[in-house]
Write a protein that binds this DNA or RNA. Structure first.
Length: 469
RNA sequence: GGCCCGUUCGUCUAGUGGUUAGGACUCAUGGUUUUCAUCCAUGCAACAGGGGUUCGAUCCCCCUACGGGCUGCCA
């Protein structure tokens, strides 16, 4: 494969969803792997539903994911003249014709066929009209669509994922390429645009598999080069239905807000419908580029599983440097740790990164390092404290005051002393101390926690805790 | 209805004409750990059904079922 050109062609009728992102990813991987071009075309010809804000949302999401495209974005709506020209060309070269069947006539025929349980076929009434007859109808003001003259025979192509696909042309009908208002239809436009962009490989969702033969007929009618096709299986929700707005989270943006990094999303998405042919599951972008192969792309649709996503995320986070984590945190929340020392923040991250599955978990757990006094959960206090543990906290607090050398050793020693004094296991000391000092019953090692927070804050929190128990 | 596509543990997936059908996530149990998380160990759990072909089919062929897509003057 030498320098292929591929494209991602979303329509701006909504945000970029997970399925679209996966399609974009596979296009991107293929282009990058083969020194090709990854182009972006916005299919904005549905004036009713297309919105400019969605274009921004989609491009922002792609940029965030790092799926950078080459060259300028192509707006399909800018190609109107070209489309018109190509419709005319087909009319001229006899591969298309004006069809004067009206919509209501067709609807009626369709209904009748349905009722009779016969296969509906578009009547080819106007397929071979003489130009004289045609002119007459136009002069009468009869509206018409333009239909392709589907030739006899069959259309076959070799899909990179699905293999050989063959259909009988008679099953295709003379489909419309231009509506009665003159606007061209999808199956026509997509072929023309892909050809104009010199797309060599069309990689898209398998919902287009059945449209492909139609598009091939357009290529042929116009004498254009037919690209290679690769159809990707769908991504489903946990109910096994095609991913849609009804599902929990489908918007790429939502995953950003949930604290997943682009690398994590890309890694997980790559594993939906593709397998690396090895036990390896954690990949960065470059590794994906090197490993990706259509041979390993699945034909069956895959269910999106957030549990596995979380696991992938956790794996990535545990491998990330503090500095990289810092960048991700700030990307999500620029105000994180405002006013605090860099060195302190670095230590905070070190203490909690291994216990977090997402960036959001890091930022929320880090809260316990960012204020003097904590707000305690009543239930937790009730569960944690009784007369004995209160006594322990009191002793712990006063012993802490006397400590001179703020070191891990000294802190550990306090715990030991208290243990002896009260004749309890170390857990009996740690649990109440942890809750008093961090407000939560889990988290970083208690010695690390105390050490990093510093004597003063610990004192404040212990006293505060004692006052509210 | 017609055409096209698909079907291996709950999920993502390996796999071969003869395997104890493998791994990962989840879940359960145990261990490590001052908590939590990690980590380690163990366990639960699958070839949609029926016919062929074959000495032998999860694998090859056919049918059925189920699911999805297309069948629009949507994209």
């Amino acid at each position: 494969m030498k320098n292929p050109s591929v494209r991602f062609a979303p329509s701006p009728t909504g945000y970029l969803h997970i399925g679209g992102a996966r399609t974009a990813l596979f296009n991107w991987l293929f282009a990058r792997q083969n020194n090709g071009k990854f182009l972006l075309r916005i299919e904005d010809t549905d004036l009713e539903r297309s919105k400019e804000e969605y274009v921004d949302q989609i491009t922002d999401a792609l940029k965030w994911l790092g799926l950078n495209w080459d060259e300028n974005i192509i707006l399909q709506s800018n190609n109107n003249d070209r489309h018109q020209e190509m419709v005319d060309k087909m009319l001229e070269n006899g591969t298309a014709y004006r069809c004067f069947l009206q919509k209501d006539e067709l609807d009626k025929l369709r209904k009748e066929s349905d009722k009779k349980k016969v296969i509906f076929r578009v009547p080819q009434t106007y397929r071979n009209l003489s130009s004289k007859e045609e002119k007459k109808l136009i002069d009468e003001g009869k509206s018409f669509t333009v239909r392709i003259k589907v030739p006899d025979g069959e259309t076959e192509f070799n899909d990179m994922v699905y293999g050989s696909i063959k259909v009988q042309n008679k099953d295709l009908d003379d489909f419309i390429i231009a509506r009665s208002d003159g606007s061209p239809t999808y199956n026509f436009v997509v072929a023309v645009d892909d050809a104009d962009m010199n797309i060599t490989h069309v990689i898209r969702g398998d919902d287009h598999l059945a449209n492909t033969p139609k598009q091939i007929l357009v290529y042929k009618a116009l004498g254009l080069n037919i690209p290679i096709f690769a159809h990707l299986p769908m991504i489903l929700g946990s109910d096994k239905k095609r991913l849609s707005k009804r599902h929990a989270a489908t918007n790429v943006q939502e995953y950003k807000e949930k604290g997943f990094t682009p690398r994590v999303i890309l890694n997980y998405l790559s594993l939906l419908g593709w397998n690396p042919d090895s036990e390896k599951e954690i990949f960065d972008q470059n590794e994906l580029i090197n490993s990706f192969e259509f041979k390993q792309v699945q034909k069956k649709s895959a269910v999106f599983d957030e549990k596995k996503l979380l696991w992938i995320s956790q794996q990535h986070l545990s491998e990330m440097s503090v500095r990289d984590l810092m960048n991700e945190i700030y990307a999500l929340n620029p105000e994180w740790g405002d006013g605090l020392e860099w060195d302190y923040l670095k230590e905070v991250i070190k203490l909690i990164k291994d216990r977090s599955k997402t960036i959001t978990e890091i930022t929320s757990m880090s809260e316990i390092f960012f204020k003097d006094k904590l707000e305690y959960d009543i239930d937790l206090l009730n569960k944690t404290f009784n007369d004995k543990s209160i006594a322990i906290i009191k002793d712990f607090q006063s012993t802490l005051t006397s400590i001179e050398d703020w070191s891990r050793e000294e802190i550990e020693k306090i715990f030991e002393d208290i243990m002896e004094q009260h004749e309890v296991a170390i857990g009996q000391v740690m649990k109440p101390v942890r809750v008093a000092i961090s407000g939560i019953p889990f988290g970083p090692g208690i010695f690390d926690l105390i050490l990093l927070l510093g004597k003063e804050i610990c004192q404040i929190r212990l006293r505060h805790a004692l006052s509210v128990i």
